[in-house]
Simulated scan of single mutants.
Amino acid sequence: MDFEQADALNQAIRLLSLRHRARTAALLAPLGLHPGQEALLLELARTGPMIQAQLSEALGVEPPSVTLMTRKLEAAGHIRRRPAPSDKRAGIVELTDSGKALADQVKRLWCALAEETVTGLPAQTVAELPVLLATLTGNVDSRRPRHAHGRRNGG
């Protein structure tokens, strides 16, 4: 790939990421949420109560970020934290009734944002996007192990 093609690709991904996050922030603000908090709410709505360490892993964020988000969401009454029965040092996080209602609002917002984002694309392309984007994410994931046969890019 030459520089012009690489630059166009990298710029497009960067701009999409920045603009999607900004649009997410604008849509979440009326709900009293910041980007990232919606993912935590949706994960708990999907899975039920989780230990904070598991939540950190599921969200792909560092434990201190989950701690900060859970404190803010707990203060707002959307989640509750309690000690895990098997390990009093571990905290179980669960949605409150308020959090469940908020997660339902976030689900509707998430559908609207996705539809807004893919407007004008053919249905087939939209159907393929999650797999394509997951592949791109995997390709740049810094936690991914290196190939067994050595470093990439002929190094």
Score class of each variant (00 low, 15 high):
Ala112Arg: 15
Thr47Val: 10
Ala114His: 12
Arg80Tyr: 10
Val126Phe: 09
Glu116Arg: 11
Lys100Ala: 14
Glu128His: 11
Lys72Glu: 13
Pro122Met: 06
Glu43Ser: 12
Thr96Asp: 05
Pro30Trp: 02
Ala127Ile: 01
Leu27Trp: 14
Met50Ile: 07
Val93Lys: 02
Ala123Asp: 12
Pro85Tyr: 09
His34Ser: 13
Pro64Gln: 02
Arg108Trp: 05
Gln37Gly: 10
Met69Glu: 01
Thr117Ser: 13
His78Trp: 13
Ile79Tyr: 00
Pro83Val: 07
Leu55Cys: 07
Thr67Trp: 04
Trp110Leu: 12
Arg82Asp: 07
Thr119Arg: 12
Lys88Ile: 11
Pro63His: 04
Ile92Tyr: 04
Ala114Tyr: 12
Glu38Val: 00
Ala114Trp: 14
Ala84Tyr: 10
Gln37Lys: 03
Leu41Gln: 01
Ala90Val: 01
Pro85Cys: 06
Glu128Ala: 15
Gly48Thr: 05
Thr47Ile: 03
Met50Ala: 12
Gln105Val: 00
Leu41Lys: 00
Gly120Arg: 04
Leu121Met: 11
Glu74Val: 02
Ala25Asp: 13
Pro64Thr: 00
Met50Trp: 00
Gly91Leu: 15
Gln54Phe: 05
Gln37Met: 13
Glu115Pro: 06
Cys111Thr: 15
Met50Val: 12
Leu59Asp: 06
Glu43Ile: 08
Leu27Ile: 04
Ala39Cys: 03
Pro130Phe: 01
Val66Ile: 08
Val93His: 08
Ala76Asp: 07
Leu33Phe: 04
Ala103His: 03
Glu38Ala: 12
Ser65His: 02
Ile51Arg: 15
Ser65Trp: 01
Leu109Ser: 09
Ser56His: 00
Lys100Ile: 06
Glu38Gln: 11
Glu57Arg: 11
Ala112Ile: 08
Ala39Gly: 11
Leu109His: 06
Leu121Ala: 07
Val126Asn: 03
Glu116Ile: 01
Lys88Pro: 13
Gln54Trp: 05
Glu38Asn: 14
Ala58Cys: 07
Thr119Glu: 15
Lys100Phe: 08
Gly99Ser: 05
Glu43Ala: 15
Leu73Gln: 07
Gly32Pro: 10
Pro30Met: 08
Thr70Tyr: 01
Thr70Met: 08
Thr47Glu: 12
Gln124Asp: 14
Pro130Cys: 02
Leu28Glu: 10
Gln54Thr: 10
Arg108Ala: 11
Glu43Gln: 15
Ile92Glu: 13
Ala58Gly: 14
Ile51Val: 14
Leu121Glu: 03
Asp97Met: 09
Leu95Arg: 04
Gly120Val: 05
Ser98Lys: 13
His78Gln: 07
Val118Asn: 00
Gly99His: 04
Ala45Tyr: 01
Glu128Leu: 10
Thr119Asp: 15
Leu102Met: 11
Leu42Trp: 02
Gly99Arg: 01
Val126Gln: 07
Ala127Gln: 14
Pro85Arg: 13
Leu27Ala: 14
Arg71Gly: 07
Asp104Gln: 14
Leu121Ile: 00
Thr67Phe: 06
Leu95Glu: 00
Thr47Tyr: 05
Met69Phe: 10
Ala26Arg: 15
Ser56Phe: 05
Ala114Glu: 14
Asp97Pro: 10
Ala76Ile: 02
Leu95Phe: 08
Ala29Val: 08
Ile92Gln: 12
Gln124His: 09
Pro64Cys: 06
Gln37Thr: 04
Met69Asp: 00
Glu38Leu: 03
Met50Asn: 02
Glu57Tyr: 03
Lys88Gly: 07
Gly48Pro: 07
Ala29His: 12
